[in-house]
Design a protein around this nucleic acid. Structure first.
Length: 567
RNA sequence: CGGGACGUAGCACAGCUUGGUAGUGCAUCUGGUUUGGGACCAGAGGGUCACAGGUUCGAAUCCUGCCGUCCCGACCA
């Protein structure tokens, strides 16, 4: 491709809308352009990269035995009612009506569509196992789209769904995808961790996420050198054994005028924050429940949702009106003589002499022992795990790191097949529900994640196999006969060898051209200048920035070898 | 959903307090000089100042409403 014929829309300055490296560079390099919040157009260079990422995903998915299809983005309400998600999914679902007032949504994910498809096509266990996938546009009306392609409202996702006769089959399908995803992200040169994850709105029992490590990641990963790794929502830790063997003392009310927060109570009573029980109230359907953790801990909202069996958007911090209705006094809430459901973090279960709110103004209660003093409550894991907490597997302190979620695996089991009556006949001729798994890769998000991990102050540094082009030939002065003829010859030779090559013959200052291609991130850069008459050019790899003068034929050999190695 | 900031040429911004000819840099076009890390000179095109009302002789500027964008928070009693 000749540079003068390309749509190169590089920008010297970053638009104000972009804050993080990948977003800024995608725009500056002329790869994407925003249409509205969270919705982007892909320009030629950006689309080339996207296609290459998709190609790698396709190759590995096909290798795994999965079959590619393409389903529609428009989905009828009826299927979502069958699965029960039409009401459950919340405002992130783009909903609309057609001219006949029939209701539809734009698919944020495709469990219903694939389950419906398979239940209509497959009747016998002999057709199993089956894994079908697609690479397609998804729609989620995010509360707050941000970071360019990292969290968009329209984005491209590879989603796969496996169908098996039993859980043993599902385990194999799941493992197969686990390995396939590892290969895909290895080939994309991402630095990633696989972590245990919560199943969220998709549902199901077991889940792993593939996290590209990055400081701008929206997820917190908790991990340990022993191999344990989980996302923040799912992470657990060993309970800190504190005051479990203490002598139980008599329960006692204390006067605490206008002392409300944990830190205020701790300093007023001259105790540690971890001597106090923190009560947090969340409501679901207008009904509040109390969640107790130790004063130095935080309540994990996802664990709250799981306890209440509710979706995240359905749960909210209890309002003042609701507190009044249940005779609870803000700042002095506690589990004693209280008429709402109580969930207690396991760490508090055996702790003695805890300080709690007194459920009346300016009052706390000392020396509480839940087993003795509170009638009905449920012990669960509620606390938010942070670095420093102890690993549930080996007991050493956990560490944390930020990650961008680029892929996720779920064991759905029969959640959708039962609800939607997707059954097949087994060997005995008995009708049984399909056992399902689902597996996603955020394709456009992955593109951003690659940039987050591969850039410098001058621009993007694409790995060779996803770069929009392999090589650029920068001609210092295309009016110079020697330079022109050498550049043209090299360009033709590389093209004949199927190298994706750009010839920059534009009439511009050399510095301008260097900056342009550094920004765009072309991995191999050949500069053709004064020594063209000696068949000598300069060769540079974008990644290490080392420039070397070499003979043309030698450079061509190096380029061909690098491309061969990458494939 | 709550809080904050912002909307002026394709991009980055000034002008607004104190109402009176709509500006600067980059980009684009023309001509010339340049050619090894985002050149220089001369000229040109490009704006319903987000939108809608209002105040005023006169509004980018003041008032009201509305739409959009970005950031922060989602949280402890």
């Amino acid at each position: 491709m000749k540079a003068s014929k390309m749509l190169l829309s590089t920008l010297k300055e970053a638009p104000q809308e972009a804050q993080i490296a990948s977003h800024i560079l995608l725009i500056r390099a002329g790869m994407i352009r925003k249409l509205v919040a969270g919705v982007y157009n892909y320009l030629p260079l950006g689309l080339k990269v996207l296609n290459k990422i998709e190609k790698i995903i396709r190759e590995e998915m096909d290798n795994s035995g999965a079959l590619e299809i393409l389903s529609s983005a428009i989905q009828p309400k009826e299927l979502w009612e069958e699965s029960g998600r039409w009401n459950k999914y919340g405002p992130e679902l783009f909903r609309f009506k057609d001219r006949h007032e029939r209701e539809f949504c734009l698919g944020p994910t495709h469990e219903e569509i694939f389950t419906n498809l398979v239940r209509n096509e497959i009747k016998s266990y002999k057709s199993l196992p089956l894994n079908i996938y697609q690479i397609q546009t998804k729609y989620r009306d995010e509360v707050r789209p941000r970071f360019g392609l990292i969290r968009g409202r329209e984005f491209i996702m590879k989603d796969a769904y496996s169908f098996d006769l039993d859980e043993k089959g599902l385990d194999e399908s799941y493992q197969n995808m686990y390995h396939t995803y590892s290969k895909i992200f290895d080939r994309l040169h991402l630095n990633y961790k696989v972590v245990l994850a919560d199943t969220g709105a998709i549902g199901g029992s077991e889940s792993h996420q593939f996290m590209a490590l990055s400081d701008i990641g929206e997820s917190n990963i908790i991990y340990c050198n022993c191999g344990y790794a989980a996302d923040e929502e799912k992470a657990t830790c060993l309970d800190d054994i504190y005051k479990n063997d203490a002598q139980v003392e008599n329960i006692e009310e204390v006067y605490t005028p206008n002392v409300k927060t944990i830190s205020e109570v701790a300093s007023y009573l001259n105790v540690l924050e971890k001597d106090i029980a923190k009560a947090v109230l969340y409501s679901y359907n207008g009904k509040p429940s109390m969640f107790l953790v130790r004063g130095d801990r935080d309540v994990n909202v996802v664990k709250v949702c799981n306890a209440l069996n509710a979706a995240e958007h359905e749960v909210y911090l209890t309002t003042s009106d609701e507190l009044n209705k249940y005779h609870l006094v803000e700042g002095f809430i506690g589990p004693i003589d209280c008429n709402i459901d109580i969930y207690v973090d396991s760490e508090l279960a055996n702790m003695k002499n805890v300080i709690v709110g007194g459920n009346k103004i300016d009052t706390h209660i000392k020396n509480v022992y839940l087993k003795r003093d509170v009638k009905n409550y449920t012990v669960i894991d509620l606390k938010d795990v942070k670095d420093g907490c102890l690993c549930p597997l080996c007991g050493k302190p956990l560490k944390s790191e930020r990650g961008i979620e680029v892929g996720q695996l779920f064991k759905l089991k029969t959640k959708y097949s039962k609800a939607m009556k997707a059954t097949i006949l087994n060997e005995k001729g008995i009708e049984v529900p399909l056992v399902m798994g689902c597996y996603g890769i955020g394709v456009t998000r992955t593109m951003s994640a690659i940039i987050e991990q591969n850039h410098d102050e001058n621009g993007i540094i694409w790995p060779l196999n996803v770069a929009p082009y392999h090589v650029v030939l920068i001609v210092i002065n295309y009016d110079d006969e020697d330079q022109k003829s050498l550049a043209d010859k090299m360009y033709e030779t590389l093209k004949e060898n199927k190298v994706e090559v750009i010839l920059d013959e534009r009439d511009a200052k050399p510095g301008f051209k260097f900056k342009d291609w550094d920004l765009i991130g072309i991995p191999l850069i050949v500069t053709i200048g004064r020594k063209a008459n000696e068949n000598i050019v300069e060769f540079k790899e974008r990644r290490n920035n080392l420039k070397e003068e070499k003979n043309v034929d030698e450079v061509i050999d190096i380029i061909l070898q690098k491309i061969k190695d990458e494939a």
